[in-house]
C-alpha cells in the first residue's frame, strides 16, 4: 500500500511539474515521466497488457511526436507568443468548468469496493482479448471504425491543400 502512495505522489508531483515548468521541452519530459508512473500503477493492478500498451503508445509514440513538433518549433521565452489576458481568463473559466463536470461525474459514479477484485487476472492479454472480442465486440469494432475515420480525415487534411492548388492552377 505504501508503494502505491509513493507512486501516486510522484504522479501528482510530475503532473504539476508538467503544468508549471516554463520550458515546453521540459514540460513534455515531465509528462513522459507522469505516463511512466501510470504504467507502474497499471502493473500494480496486475493489468500487464494495459501497462505495456500505455508504455508503447503514450510514452513511445505520442510523446515522441510531441517532442518532435516542439523541437521543430524550437519554442523558448523570446519567441513565445504573448497571450492576451482575455484568453487567459477564458482558459481559466474553461478549466474550472471541466473540473466541475469531472467532480459531478465522479459524485454520480458508484463507489466500487477496491478490496473485491472481480477477476484477478483480467488484465492479462488472453483474458482481456476474450472479453474484448466476446462481450464488448460491438463497441470495440465501432471504436476501430472511429479511429479509421480519424486517420482518413488526417490524411485528407494533409492532402487537401495540394488538391486545391491543382484545381486553381
Amino acid at each position: 500500500m505504501s508503494f502505491f502512495y509513493l507512486v501516486a505522489f510522484l504522479s501528482v508531483i510530475f503532473s504539476l511539474m508538467t503544468i508549471f515548468t516554463k520550458n515546453p521541452v521540459h514540460s513534455v519530459l515531465y509528462l513522459v515521466i507522469t505516463f511512466f508512473t501510470f504504467t507502474v500503477h497499471y502493473i500494480m493492478l496486475n493489468a500487464q497488457f494495459l501497462a505495456v500498451v500505455n508504455f508503447i503508445v503514450y510514452m513511445g509514440a505520442i510523446m515522441v511526436l510531441f517532442l518532435f513538433v516542439l523541437m521543430l518549433l524550437n519554442l523558448n521565452k523570446d519567441t513565445e507568443p504573448m497571450k492576451s489576458p482575455l484568453v487567459k481568463v477564458m482558459g481559466a473559466i474553461a478549466g474550472m468548468c471541466l473540473l466541475a463536470t469531472f467532480l459531478g461525474a465522479f459524485r454520480a459514479l458508484e463507489q466500487s469496493d477496491v478490496l473485491i477484485k472481480p477477476h484477478e487476472n483480467i488484465g492479462l492479454v488472453e483474458n482481456l482479448g476474450k472479453v474484448l472480442f466476446g462481450e464488448f465486440l460491438l463497441p470495440f469494432e465501432l471504436s476501430s471504425i472511429l479511429l479509421l475515420t480519424a486517420m482518413v480525415g488526417a490524411v485528407l487534411l494533409a492532402k487537401h491543400e495540394k488538391g486545391v492548388k491543382k484545381q486553381h492552377g
Partner: peptide, 25 residues
C-alpha cells in the same frame, strides 16, 4: 519470463529514441 515479452521489447525500443532525440536537441 513474462507473458508479454514481445511487447516489452517494443516498449524498450520505443524508449530508445529518446536518448537520440534529447542528445540531438
Amino acid at each position: 519470463e513474462v507473458n508479454i515479452g514481445v511487447l516489452y521489447i517494443f516498449g524498450v525500443i520505443a524508449l530508445g529514441v529518446y536518448g537520440i532525440m534529447l542528445g540531438g536537441w
